[in-house]
Design a binder for these strands. Structure first.
Lengths: 109, 109
DNA sequence: TGGCGAAATGGTAAAATAGCCAATAATTGA
DNA sequence: TCAATTATTGGCTATTTTACCATTTCGCCA
């Protein structure tokens, strides 16, 4: 695969790799929301939330729509939510068997 | 959802959010590989590759196994590879219709 | 048309990340 | 047991990211 492709993919993944941004994506998976709604959920400064949204929009994760004074954001590609299930699987597997092989060798009860 | 949960998920996602690390995951999806193999693929210093692997191991993405002098790494949770398909979808959708609504309004040819 | 509210942008300081080199471990084999 | 090989760790610097505050922009309506 072309190196530039990896750079592109990393950019998109990086755009989700932040607790607040995951919180935002999670909220948007339920319904479209304005920046002010999202600010209440995330709890940081409005400008901070706006910048998070800008990064995600730039990456192609979300889409916006202006209505009067407000800007409403929504998810652009639904499949990213399925992915989070896989992330849960990673978390689960960490608890189940950290260093499984090692454990078998040193603790074979 | 609990804030700590978002932090955990972000840690895992962040562990993939780098071109070299994606390159590594891609290679490991084919087969188990030692650090020296991965270094040839990635092209940076061996210590750099080792640190990338350490981050991903810590996140639960990969698992290692020592054989003599070499350490072999492999994927721990296969589902992350499916996700990359979704990332491709994001990339594709960016080319198809960036700011689709705006485009309709300002450039209706 | 002046002021108000929502959002974006600029500026900046603090924190996190990345990458290289050097040094250290660990293991093999001569 | 010493030298060679593979990997990890420490130290350091440069870069990137984050978050806040202040400022600006944009649209609404009194």
């Amino acid at each position: 695969m072309h190196p530039e492709r990896f750079r592109l993919k990393a950019q998109i993944i990086k755009a989700m790799a932040h607790p607040s941004r995951l919180m935002i994506l999670d909220a948007l998976s339920e319904q479209e929301m304005c920046v002010c709604d999202l600010q209440k959920i995330v709890g940081s400064d409005l400008s901070t939330v706006s910048k998070h949204l800008s990064v995600m929009k730039n990456a192609g994760l979300v889409q916006d729509r202006k209505v009067g004074l407000q800007v409403f954001y929504r998810l652009r590609v639904p499949c990213i939510m399925q992915f989070f299930g896989c992330v849960e699987e990673v978390i689960a597997s960490r608890f189940v068997s950290d260093h499984f092989d090692d454990a078998l060798q040193t603790c074979p009860r």
